[in-house]
Amino acid sequence: MNRLSSFNVVSLTLGFVFLYVPMLILVIYSFNASKLVTVWAGFSTRWYGELLSNEAFLDAAWVTLRVAVISSTIATVLGTMAAYVLVRGGRFMGRTLFSGMIYAPLVMPEVITGLSLLLLFIGLGLDRGVLTIVLAHTTFSMCFVSVVVSSRLVSFDRSLEEAALDLGASPWDAFRLVTLPIIAPAVISGWLLAFTLSLDDLVIASFTSGPSATTLPMKIWSSVRLGVSPEINALSTILIGLVTVGVIAASLASKQAALRAKRDEQAAARAA
């Protein structure tokens, strides 16, 4: 099985070229001195300077960051609860509807989610702003969290929980002291996923925000509609850089955690 044919190598190479070259071009041309984005006129960090002195972008970034932190935190709590209910909850009334409401938002077109939430908020007379964006983002990202966490819950050994219960732990203690540490990596990646989804969202935020709150994607959208702009290239480079560092750091950390767990297991096996 572990031989790559030349066809495999070619399809992987072409696939990764396709995935990475567009972003690479964006990064390279963010250092272009010329305002014409397709003509190279020497290295410059001019657009980064202009970006960082642009108040509107900084304000939007701050709104986006606040929305993302709050919504992903609530979504992680709700999504973990939902995952626990789906995997461990057994049968209860309306279970099918519940699981439907968890899976449907994963694929629901954003225009529908956005429109329906906006009409709800108007019906309720809620002022549109940071609060309404947070509510909207929490709703769809809790479903992603729930899917990530439930895949971890499905694969872990239930007898550990039962042992804790047999030894006299309350269900809450069993969850807090046994289940939570085991599913923690999934909960953390669920939070990160919710956080990025919120940072990224344009359509739902456009529907649910009011004049008082503009998010970064909305700001980016209004300038890229007019064509390619070097300031946006600089902003993209910063975002791509942050994500790359974050993903690499997270994967190194999880690798170390896996190694440590393996060592502990071996030590325990030797001791026994």
Binding site: F16, Y20, L26, L199, I220, W221, L239, V247
Partner: peptide, 20 residues
Amino acid sequence: MLVILPFWTSFLIRVYAWVG
């Protein structure tokens, strides 16, 4: 990780990259 990395990067920016 190489497949997942673009997924974490802003959707809007990845679409925008193709305009140029």
